[in-house]
Design a protein around this nucleic acid. Sequence first.
DNA 1: CGTAGTTTTGTTTTT
DNA 2: CAAAACTACG
Length: 728
Amino acid sequence: MLDLTQLNDEQKKAVRLTDGSIIIFAGAGSGKTRVITYRIAHMIENGVNPFNILAITFTNKASKEMKDRIFELTDYSSNIWVSTFHSFCARILRIEAEHLGYSGNFSIYDSDDSDRALKNCIKELDINDKNFPAKSVRFKIGQFKDELRSPKAVLENAFDIREETIGKIYEHYQKKLLTSNAMDFDDLIYKTVEVLKKNPEILNKYQERFKYIMVDEYQDTSKAQYMLVKLLADKYKNICVVGDDDQSIYGWRGADVKNILRFSEDFQNTTTIKLEQNYRSTKNILGVATNVIKNNYNRKEKVLWTENNEGEPVKINKTNRDIDEADFVSANIKRLIREENYSLKDIAILYRTNAQSRLLEDSLIKNAIPYRLFGGVRFYERREIKDVLAYLSVISNPKDEVSLMRIINVPKRGIGDATVKKVSQIGMLNDISFFEVLQNEEYSKSFGSKAKSLREFYELTAKLIQSSKVMPVDELLKLILNETGYTQSLIEEDPLNLDGRIDNIDEFVNKAYQYTLDNVDGSLEEFLQEISLIADIDNYKDGDDAVSLMTIHTSKGLEFPCVFLTGMEEGIFPTYRATIGETADDLEEERRLFYVAITRARKEIYLSSSLSRLQRGQINYNAISRFVREIPEEYTSDNMAKIKSMLKDEARTQKQKINLKADNYSKLVTPKNITLDFEVGDTVMQKKYGEGVVKEISPAGKDYEVSVYFEEHGTKKFMALLSKLKKV
DNA sequence: CGTAGTTTTGTTTTT
DNA sequence: CAAAACTACG
């Protein structure tokens, strides 16, 4: 019998209410995960078949943990489908691929692969890639997919000529993906919705299967994800979503807070439950979090409270240089270990951008403090790993053009751009894939002197495909590394293994081996899928005794006794873009991010900032973050008064020296010894874009930032010194 | 045609 | 400070 005595009244209510539509507003640290797992356990105990339960989590790590916890409570877990949106969709699509003209072994493209495919599309359509950079086109296409708009729909209602062009690229890109038998991240959701919408019998199958649906972190679902949930839940209407609008931090990725705010309008007879008691943090920490977040205009009013004690005041520190900030963190970590009895794994260092990790790492290494770094250049995104992965992808799905292009001349085989172009033209003319051109010997005459290299490459790949059918992934991997000479080429490139690429390759082989142990009959496809949907945090293990370093985004859902929040500076956190934004939305999301960061901590928080910071090669002087200013003094350590007066001075200096918007106090230092030979209104010459009109000049560190309007390209920003603007 | 060196450009956050 | 884009050489 499930023991509910540990739960508070609201939690019990949420657990017991298994049917109908329910929304749970769960404040930070309110025992949300516990409620979800108990709820599922309770359902099973009351006769719900585990087979009929679907639970969507935000990360693979969260889904693994949830499965473990449910298993502890009920002895069930294998039948319950617990996964992220992306994994869930990938799994459905493997089964239903044929209905979309795909086959089940489709590749999943990450953003890097998508960009490569897009670049090719843009080139093939003869569109100026300067005006349509792959990255921004990908972003826009992602938005279309999230709004469930097909290429056709986009082209039909194109808002302007630019949108029409992007529509054309979108159309071509989808064709290319289909011939490559590949899907990008957004496709996973979009295509799943498509297949369910177009095929009522398939929809019915999954509605019957998933009679009970739960979605965690609902505040971070996108429109398309919302549609998916709505479709699945439409028949039985047993839907429970859990979230916190104050923790919505993925707006830039299409997450729509409105999904959570509007839930009760979308589903009839919704029960609303609020979990407002915090079990995680001290009163001081909670005080900081709630007092800052209440400055947001766009939110549901709520009162978080805790029975925990006051705890330590929140510590605020400011150093002169960024290096000193890192040393401040290291020194305090040592003190916490030595004097306060914390262990390394109790401590996290958080920051806004990955680039900030470097200095922190240097200092930790210098002080011999073990650490684990999450994020940054992800393991599976490293060049050497992506190369090897591309081999695996081609073996699994020879139509995968992006992967094929990646490896065709790696290691060097004398097959350059010109040859590749020739092959792909033949492919397009005959409407066959790149690989099929290589396969068919009748085309080899067209390749002249390169025919031999191409043939050799084809035979190598064909051989590897044969081998893949009879050997486990790790063996196949070793075979690839030997047969292609890839390892050899890495050794030649860097004989002393200075950049550790060989080590990474070894680690990858180990991971593959581990995979074969964990999944005895796991296929190559499944291995690839698992890798492509892996998140940084999924590798987090509780056991390692080391300090954790990660971005605030990555830290979502975790908790640590001690948290260092670094780089509390205007222009960094909140990020520069949010400080100049026209609308308050970006700034509010930054504030929610601050809220998330603070509520990760259980006992101690250190907020640090630095007067000067090296950013992309130049020293910048940033003011202390506005979020620090928003903290009431009562929650902070004694030096707050000192800091406060420092802040006041800063603000005053700002007003005197710089004539900027009232709420922008991010730059302290005005340029010295620089005079510009132009002013606002003048026409200037820029190397890349030609002539344009100066719209705004603002000081930025030692340089000036100049906004210039170009008739054809719109407004661009330049650093005056760096870009050598000339008056015309 | 393919590569190696040089110049330019740019920054959030990630499934 | 790097990665990416461009240019000149063999």
